[in-house]
C-alpha cells in the first residue's frame, strides 16, 4: 500500500464520514500553517513592514494582524480570513495572494496533468509486463528504471535534460513556457481562457505559438512523467503480482480465455481499484514537486511563485501557496475516494 494512500481510505463509512474527515484535515492544515506563519516567526510584523518602518507603522501593522490579541482569537480571525478567501496580500506583487495563485496555478496544473498522463500511459503497461515476467530480464529492467526514478533528484535530472536536449542537441525549447519572440505574440493575441498555454493557444488558433509552447513543455513534462512512471509502474507491478495469484485468474483460464485477456481484463480490472489512489498520489506529488521543477525550468507556476516569495520573505504568499497545495492534496484524496467507490462494486 502506498504510505499516504489510505488517508480517507476504504474504511470511512459513507459520505458524511468522508466529509468530516476532510473538514478535520483541512482544519489541521490551517492550524499548522497558522502556527508556521504567525507563531513561529520571531517577528512577523517586521517581515511585513520592513526594518525602516516607524513605531506607528509597526503598531498599526501589529494591530491589523491581530497580534495584540490572544492566540485563540488570532486563530479564529485567521480561519475567518482564509475561509472567506482572504489569504493576505503579497508583499512582492502587491496583489491579493489568492488572485496571484489563480493566475499562476493553471501552468502548474497543465504540467502535472501531462506528466501524469505520460506516467500512467507508460507506467501501467510497464508494471503489468513486469509482473507477468516476474524475475526475468524484462522485470529486472523495468524495476531498475523505476528505482532510478526513486533515486535521482528531480532538479538535477531536469538540469541534465536541459544540458543534453536543449544545450547540446537543440531538440527542445529552453526554460520558460515560450521563446521570447513568441511571448510577445502570446501576451497580445491569445486570450487567457483556461490559463493552460496549450489549450489557450489552440483555442485562439495561434498554431505557431502552440508549436513553440509544445517544444518548451516536452522536457519538463517528460522529466516529471518519468517520476510518475517510476512510481506507477512499481505499484502496478506489485498489485498485479498479488492479483495474478488469485483464484479468479485460474477460473478465467479454465474458461479458456486467452492469456492477454486473463491479464489485461481480469487481473488488471482488479488492480485499477487500488491504482486510483496511486495515481492521485502521484499527481499530488507532482504538484508539490513543482517548487523544484519550476525553479529549474523557469516555469511560471505555483512552485516558482512560492520559491520567489520565500526569498523575498513574503510569508503570506508562502503560506497561501502551502494552503492551496494542501487543499489540492485533500481534494485529490476525496476524488480518489469517490472514484474508488465508483470502480469497486464492493465499496458501493
Amino acid at each position: 500500500m502506498p504510505s499516504r494512500g489510505g488517508l480517507i481510505g476504504r474504511r470511512a463509512r459513507g459520505l458524511a464520514g468522508l466529509a468530516a474527515t476532510l473538514a478535520a484535515t483541512f482544519l489541521g492544515l490551517l492550524f499548522v500553517t497558522f502556527v508556521i506563519g504567525r507563531v513561529i516567526p520571531i517577528d512577523p510584523v517586521l517581515a511585513i513592514v520592513g526594518e525602516r518602518a516607524t513605531a506607528e507603522q509597526y503598531a498599526a501593522a501589529r494591530h491589523a494582524l491581530g497580534l495584540d490579541r490572544s492566540l485563540l482569537v488570532q486563530f479564529g480571525l485567521y480561519l475567518r480570513d482564509v475561509l472567506s478567501g482572504d489569504l493576505g496580500t503579497s508583499t512582492l506583487t502587491a496583489h491579493p495572494v489568492l488572485e496571484d495563485i489563480g493566475r499562476v496555478f493553471p501552468a502548474t496544473l497543465e504540467l502535472a496533468t501531462i506528466a501524469t498522463l505520460v506516467g500512467v500511459l507508460l507506467g501501467v503497461p510497464m508494471g503489468v509486463s513486469a509482473a507477468v515476467r516476474q524475475g526475468r530480464l524484462a522485470d529486472q529492467a523495468i524495476r531498475l528504471v523505476g528505482l532510478f526514478g526513486y533515486s535521482m533528484p528531480v532538479f538535477w535530472l531536469g538540469l541534465m535534460g536541459l544540458l543534453l536536449f536543449y544545450g547540446d542537441l537543440g531538440w527542445v525549447g529552453g526554460p520558460g513556457r515560450l521563446d521570447t519572440s513568441f511571448q510577445f505574440v502570446f501576451d497580445l493575441d491569445v486570450p487567457r481562457i483556461t490559463g493552460a498555454i496549450l489549450i489557450d493557444t489552440a483555442l485562439a488558433g495561434a498554431w505557431d505559438v502552440f508549436r513553440n509552447a509544445l517544444t518548451h513543455i516536452v522536457l519538463p513534462a517528460g522529466v516529471l512523467g518519468y517520476y510518475s512512471l517510476a512510481y506507477v509502474s512499481r505499484m502496478t507491478r506489485s498489485f498485479m503480482l498479488e492479483q495474478l495469484h488469485q483464484e479468479y485468474v485460474t477460473t478465467a483460464r479454465v474458461k479458456g480465455m486467452p492469456e492477454w485477456r486473463v491479464v489485461w481484463v481480469h487481473a488488471l480490472g482488479n488492480v485499477l481499484v487500488p491504482l486510483i489512489t496511486v495515481i492521485a498520489l502521484s499527481y499530488a506529488q507532482l504538484l508539490e514537486g513543482s517548487v523544484l521543477t519550476e525553479t529549474v525550468f523557469a516555469w511560471p507556476g505555483l512552485g516558482l511563485y512560492i520559491t520567489n516569495a520565500l526569498f523575498s520573505g513574503d510569508l503570506s504568499a508562502v503560506m497561501g501557496g502551502t494552503i492551496v497545495v494542501g487543499a489540492a492534496f485533500i481534494l485529490l484524496n476525496l476524488l480518489s475516494d469517490l472514484l474508488y467507490r465508483l470502480v469497486d462494486p464492493r465499496a458501493r
Partner: peptide, 23 residues
Amino acid sequence: MRLTDIFLAFPRLILALAFVAAL
C-alpha cells in the same frame, strides 16, 4: 491516528519549505 492522518495528508516538501521559511 487522526493527528497522524492529518499530517500524512500534507504535502511534505512544501510543509518542510514553509517550516524553513518561518525558522
